[in-house]
């Protein structure tokens, strides 16, 4: 069985479990919705605020959602079994990362539509660009999030550690996406920030799978 099929099997398993329970997507969706409503109400819903509100909401939703992608293995004590399957553990990373990527992308689409309604920004004319930039950000979030989800597994107080680790590490993603989303909504673009996002994504996609094997090493 080659690596791609192994990763696809892990992703399929995670997505199937999510489809049957729909716990993660409900939890992250509710958090994101609450953040958008709260920030929109507190700050005022001028279109200029939309980009910042969107990415703060997505960031907080990611904090809630990311630990859940390894939670089920711990609850069912299936992690050892998963690790015992022959082949490289890197494929587990790619499978779990792909499942996380799909869930966060679905959330991004829903939130963009919501933003169009609540903040009266024109998401339709710039739809493609907004999704493209959003996906760059979500690739970065998923790349580092999958590693952190595995990292906090055997640590006490992991609900505390996830925000402490994810938000500072993913800060370039959030900042870059806010600036780029603002630029797109204003009808321009910002090459340096695009470069920040692409470099961040490439670096962490390269490094995190290797470190994932270190984290999952059952010593």
């Amino acid at each position: 069985m080659n690596g791609f099929l192994r990763a696809a099997a892990v992703a399929r398993k995670d997505l199937l479990m999510e489809w049957r329970g729909r716990q993660t997507i409900t939890a992250t969706g509710m958090v994101a919705l609450l953040m958008i409503l709260l920030l929109g109400f507190v700050l005022g819903s001028e279109p200029g605020r939309a980009a910042a509100v969107l990415w703060v909401a997505l960031g907080f939703a990611a904090i809630v959602g990311i630990p859940r992608i390894t939670q089920s293995e711990v609850e069912q004590q299936a992690l050892e079994t998963l690790l015992l399957y022959p082949g490289s553990r890197e494929h587990l990373y790619w499978g779990k990362g792909a499942a996380l990527l799909l869930m966060l992308s679905a959330l991004l689409v829903a939130l963009l539509l919501l933003l169009g309604v609540l903040f009266s920004v024109d998401v339709w004319t710039h739809g493609g660009a907004l999704l493209g930039v959003g996906m760059l950000g979500i690739v970065g979030l998923s790349a580092i999030g999958t590693l952190l989800a595995a990292l906090v597994l055997h640590v006490r107080g992991r609900e505390l550690l996830m925000p402490l680790l994810l938000l500072p590490l993913a800060l370039p993603v959030v900042l870059g996406c806010v600036r780029l989303t603002e630029a797109i909504l204003a009808g321009t673009t910002s090459a340096p920030w695009l470069l920040v996002l692409v470099v961040f994504d490439l670096v962490y996609l390269l490094v995190c799978p290797i470190l994932f094997e270190v984290v999952m090493d059952e010593a």
Binding site: I144, L147, L169, V207, L211, V215
Partner: peptide
């Protein structure tokens, strides 16, 4: 091991 992983990804920032 976990602290070493954070030491690596943190420095990349």
């Amino acid at each position: 091991r976990l602290a070493a992983v954070i030491g690596v990804i943190g420095f990349l920032d």
